[in-house]
Computed example of a mutant assay.
Amino acid sequence: MAKTSVEAPDQLKYEPRSELVIYPFEGEQYLAHKVNVTFLSDEPGNWFVYVDAHTGEVIDQFNALHPLEEYKMEDHTGVGTGVHGELRGDLHMSRVKADGDSTHFMLADHSHEGLEGILTYDYKTGELVTNNSAAFNSEEDAPGVDAHYNSEQVYDYYKEEHDRNSLDDEGMAIVSYVNFGNNYNNAFWNGRNMTYGNGDGDFMVPLSAGLDVAAHEMTHGVISNTANLVYRGQSGALNESFADIFGAIIDDENWELGEDIMGPGAVEDGRTALRSLSDPSKFPVNEAYVPYGNGDGMYPSHMDEFYDLPWYLDNGGVHINSSIINHAAYLTAQEIGREALGNIYYRALVHYLTPNSNFQEARQVIVQSAIDLYGEGSEEAQATASGFDQVGINEE
């Protein structure tokens, strides 16, 4: 009923979501199915349809698309200030002429041919991050500035290094939400967009501040549209590892992940990053995970330290055992550099890995990718195999 009422296409990219609610409408209270129908077509929509749970009749509906075409928009280049005070020059945005003579600026980048846009929203308002000038320099703007700037950096990497047009390689919009939750110490890819919490100010600062965090979350989008590694056990650890590895490749200052989002309390306690690819064991795991490892309670860097976690803890160790693959990649990169590492791992992700691949299969196809690109017996192929050998994932 919901799809028919909004004339949605027969084939939808996203399955409609539904929840049962009490819906007040025109003085009455209805038990209703609140259905969200999202689609792209000549008349795109992000419809919310309320269907009477008793009669099946549509009570109410509205389109929450926030269509940009309602405005006269022009590409514009401005500046912004990030969470740590960095000046973000050449910040691509849109100049918008609203009703009357007022002009304002939105973090909506439509400057890339073949890309639907890089769009940064404030989660609390549901609207694009907007300012009255092209200088987004207030403290309130900072999370949005970093998310927008970092999204373009990650897009550029995949486009320039791998000729990949956005996360799906078909130019899908790169959408970020900032200011999620209250004191929320996390960021995530939800299958459609990136969402960043602002942290609690002590353990974490706004998570959009980290280029490697943005690269990590956006790489989850790439993974979803390629190997689509199942998010539990070893396949899930590979999913997390590839996100970490490309995070460290794109943010090439070091081999740590999340160093720019750690708050003063965390740093004082010695937690200067979330994870380390170069030295995984410098950081402890959650106390609940310790009994399932070798007893030292640190992130593993070798299969001898593998955590045999049950599914209900971290989906079987997706954020823990990933550090073994991370370390293998780091060791390989010490021999051949970040660029070749990225080429090899990207090829394996796009052409070889499957949803249920495990560590042993990953070694096989990643080494094969190095051979494909650089030749059997090449320095790159040998370094790739050596990285896995050193972490105990040996050739069968």
Rank of each mutant, 00 (worst) to 15 (best):
V267E: 13
V145W: 10
Y121M: 05
S5F: 09
N225R: 11
L107K: 12
D99H: 10
N46Y: 06
G387H: 01
L31Q: 11
I320Q: 00
V96G: 06
E28Y: 09
V205I: 11
A288C: 02
K72H: 10
D10A: 06
Y71G: 02
S235F: 10
G181F: 06
V21Y: 05
Q11Y: 06
D146N: 15
K72L: 11
A64N: 15
N198L: 02
Q360F: 04
T77M: 13
V290P: 07
A134M: 03
V35M: 03
Y346F: 14
M298S: 01
E396P: 15
N225I: 01
W311C: 00
V58F: 03
N356P: 01
I261K: 05
A248C: 14
F39C: 13
G114T: 09
L20P: 00
S166R: 05
D101Q: 12
D168T: 10
Q368Y: 14
G78P: 09
D260H: 12
A64D: 15
E139M: 04
L277R: 03
T77C: 06
V350H: 04
Q334T: 07
A214M: 15
F283V: 03
A362F: 05
G100P: 12
V213C: 04
S323A: 09
N183L: 07
Q153D: 06
Y196V: 10
N286W: 04
P284K: 11
S102M: 11
P24Y: 12
T38F: 08
K3F: 01
Y71S: 04
E15K: 08
G27L: 08
V205C: 01
G171V: 05
P67F: 07
A135Q: 08
Y123L: 09
E26V: 00
N193M: 09
P280D: 11
N356V: 12
A64F: 12
S41K: 13
E259D: 15
V49I: 14
D52Q: 06
I393T: 05
R95S: 04
G82W: 10
Y231R: 12
T103A: 01
V205Y: 03
Q360R: 09
V58I: 11
S133A: 07
S276F: 04
E396F: 09
E380F: 07
E15T: 09
E217Q: 13
L229S: 05
D296R: 13
L257K: 00
V367W: 10
